[in-house]
């Protein structure tokens, strides 16, 4: 047990070290661009999982919060003439605006469950996209252009990279804290049987709503960081249905409701998606990702990590059994011992 813990801690340190030195080793802007995108998806997939993975309320509308954060950033940076590292100070504010939007969204959507909830989150997504294409504050369909950050061109990506990395680490740490808290336990109890949890004294609505608001806050900050990095805000890209699908796929791929699952999903799938998009004319990657989604839902519905952990435990049990078995046992005894342990 302790050896496993040490191994885990060592792995974590190595991962953090890799994240820290990555832009120093790979100075190519395309590499850091991929890395920033990936880190942003680590943030969003973990934040999504903190609400949807823990509570079982699958949201297909997190782009609403991502886009709200992004548009707030675009408007505020322009109107308040904030640029460079000063603009980064707008990130928590962008998160706050997204969190504020999450309150009415949650109060309405969280009254229903399962597929009805999913459909309502999709409806909110389309409302947000339509609003962004038609309101004057968002620049309508012609979009908004953000002030260009005054960073040196050789290391232009680095501030964005490190900010995304810090946010990603904080988000994953927060997810870990939530999962092991009583609050996280209540969320997972809601996932298993909400009415029963309510009957045992859990205040289900405040618990669900606060998880959604927290998730929206982080997602909004990620959206703001992303839009400032790419420099333009168009409704089609800021409110992108594929964004929601990608986030959900990442969490499902790694393992819904786990801490490492969404991180793994983002680390594997986002670079793969970027690479495929470069190699092809574009839409092939989406077809492939759709196929991947099917494969995962059909064969690994609980995700890569929980399934792998299960196989590991089984493998260890088999090894332990082999070691325990004394040499020269008769076949009948073998069969017996095998039957006995498989039942336990």
């Amino acid at each position: 047990m302790t050896a496993q813990r040490t191994l885990r801690a060592a792995g974590l340190v190595v991962l953090l070290a890799v994240v820290a030195v990555f832009p120093l080793v790979f100075t190519n802007p395309t590499a850091t661009l991929f890395a920033i995108d990936t880190l942003i998806f680590v943030i969003v997939a973990s934040a999504w999982n903190m609400f949807s993975g823990f509570s079982g309320y699958l949201s297909l509308g997190h782009a609403v919060f991502y886009g709200t954060g992004a548009y707030f950033m675009a408007v505020a940076a322009n109107d308040w003439h904030m640029n460079g590292s000063a603009a980064f100070e707008l990130l928590p504010l962008a998160g706050l605006v997204a969190a504020l939007i999450a309150v009415p969204v949650g109060l309405i959507a969280l009254r229903v469950r399962r597929h009805t909830f999913v459909v309502i989150t999709i409806a909110f997504f389309f409302i947000a996209q339509l609003a962004a294409s038609n309101l004057s504050v968002t620049g309508g369909s012609s979009g908004l252009i953000l002030p260009s950050p005054p960073f040196a061109s050789a290391t232009f990506n680095n501030p964005f990279y490190y900010l995304a990395a810090v946010l990603a680490v904080l988000t994953v740490a927060l997810a870990w804290l939530v999962r092991r808290s009583r609050y996280g336990l209540q969320l997972r109890a809601i996932r298993d049987d909400e009415d029963r949890a309510a009957g045992l004294g859990v205040r289900t609505m405040p618990v669900k709503l606060s998880a959604l608001v927290l998730s929206a806050f982080i997602t909004g900050m990620a959206g703001a960081l992303w839009v400032y990095f790419i420099g333009t805000a168009y409704p089609m890209f800021v409110f992108d249905p594929l964004f929601d699908l990608a986030v959900v796929l990442m969490a499902f791929f790694g393992g819904l409701g786990t801490i490492a699952g969404p991180v793994l999903g983002a680390l594997v799938l986002e670079p793969a998606q970027q690479w495929l998009t470069l190699q092809t004319t574009g839409y092939e990657s989406e077809i492939l990702f759709g196929a991947l989604f099917l494969v995962i839902i059909l064969f690994l519905p609980r995700g890569v990590l929980p399934t792998a952990a299960e196989y590991l435990t089984k493998g260890r049990a088999v090894l332990a059994r082999r070691r325990e078995r004394p040499p020269g046992q008769s076949p009948s005894e073998l069969a017996e011992s095998r039957g006995g342990s498989s039942r336990s």
Binding site: A189, D192, G201, V202
Partner: peptide, 21 residues
């Protein structure tokens, strides 16, 4: 308790015990 028991299947037994206030 319920006729068809209503426990939290994906929580451990101890975690089940920690759900009620």
């Amino acid at each position: 308790t319920f006729q068809l028991t209503r426990i939290f299947p994906r929580l451990t037994v101890l975690e089940n015990m920690l759900v009620p206030s």
